[in-house]
Amino acid sequence: MLQDLGHSNISKSQVSEFILMGFPGIHTWQHWLSLPLALLYLLALTANILILIIIKQEATLHQPMYYFLGILAVVDMGLATTIMPKILAILWFSAKAIGLPECFAQMYVIHCFVLMESGIFVCMAIDRYVAICQPLRYPSIVTDSFVVKATVFMALRNSLATIPVPVLAAERHYCSKNQIEHCLCSNLGVTRLSCDDRTINSIYQLFLAWTLMGSDLGLIFLSYALILHSVLKLNSAEAASKALSTCTSHLILILFFYTVIVVISITHSATMTLPLIPVLLNVLHNVIPPALNPIVYAFKNKELRQGFYKALKLNIKGN
Rank of each mutant, 00 (worst) to 15 (best):
G25D: 07
E171T: 02
L72Y: 11
S186I: 13
Y66M: 07
I264A: 10
L168H: 09
A150P: 07
M213R: 13
M84G: 06
M124K: 06
A155Y: 15
L100G: 01
M272Q: 09
L45Q: 11
D196G: 01
V165N: 05
A80G: 06
T199C: 08
I53W: 11
C185Y: 00
L228P: 00
L115F: 05
T199I: 03
N286K: 12
F23S: 01
L61A: 13
K310F: 00
K242H: 13
C112R: 03
F23N: 03
M272G: 01
T151V: 14
I19F: 00
T82N: 12
L37E: 02
L168Y: 13
L208Y: 12
I141T: 14
P278L: 02
G119C: 05
L79S: 10
K302N: 09
S269A: 10
Y66R: 07
T199K: 06
Q14D: 03
M84L: 15
W29V: 10
W210H: 14
V142L: 07
A155T: 14
M272I: 04
Y174C: 00
A170G: 03
K302T: 10
C123W: 00
I49N: 06
A209T: 13
I71L: 14
I141M: 04
L193W: 13
A311V: 04
L88D: 01
L312P: 02
S94I: 02
C112P: 00
I110W: 04
I254Y: 02
